[in-house]
């Protein structure tokens, strides 16, 4: 079996199917994902945050899709799930802001509205900041994946 071959993809484009690339990316992808989640969760403690972490996480899915073929990649996160996560992430952000109104602060208030602040410097601290970071991180990751798939499909 040849180590590397070019296969026909849907619509006539070609994808490189390479054993080395495949195995490496399969090995590396989970670590990238864990790192992405780490960056999202530690947004209020270290450099990084929602956008960087979400982009890292989304990039790992894109990497898998590129090194295998689109179908295998698409199995990891379906279109419906991705767009649901997007709407959910963005709406969760607004919901956090509205909860702040409901418990007596202004829109998007954090300490003034009484979110639990915790001890500064620990993981579960900073009230609404952590919640919003997670929501935006989810949204960014799904956005990167959706953008990738949509533009690829448009090229067919």
């Amino acid at each position: 079996m040849p180590l590397s071959r070019r296969t026909e993809r849907r619509g006539g484009g070609t994808a490189i199917e390479d054993q080395i690339v495949r195995i490496t990316s399969r090995l590396v992808a989970p670590f990238i994902q864990v790192y992405g989640i780490y960056v999202i969760l530690h947004g209020h403690l270290s450099p990084g945050g929602s956008f960087s972490g979400g982009a890292i996480f989304g990039a790992s899915l894109v990497l898998v899709a590129l090194s295998f073929n689109l179908e295998t990649g698409a199995k990891q996160i379906s279109h419906q799930l991705a767009s649901g996560l997007e709407s959910g992430g963005a709406f969760g952000f607004i919901l956090t802001g509205l909860i702040a109104i409901a418990i007596g602060g202004n829109f998007l208030a954090n300490r003034a509205a009484g979110f639990p602040m915790g001890q500064a410097g620990e993981l579960f601290s900073a009230g609404a900041i952590l919640i919003i970071t997670v929501f935006v991180g989810i949204k960014v990751a799904s956005t990167i994946v959706t953008l990738f798939y949509t533009i690829i499909e448009g090229e067919e």
């Binding site: 209020h44 403690l45 450099p47 952000f93 998007l108 500064a120 900073a126 609404a128 919003i132 970071t133």
Partner: peptide, 21 residues
Amino acid sequence: ETGAVNIVSSVIIDYRAFDTL
């Protein structure tokens, strides 16, 4: 005031959260 050690985070998600929205 915000509980975040990373001040950039506290600016984008707390002081100027509407920009992030």
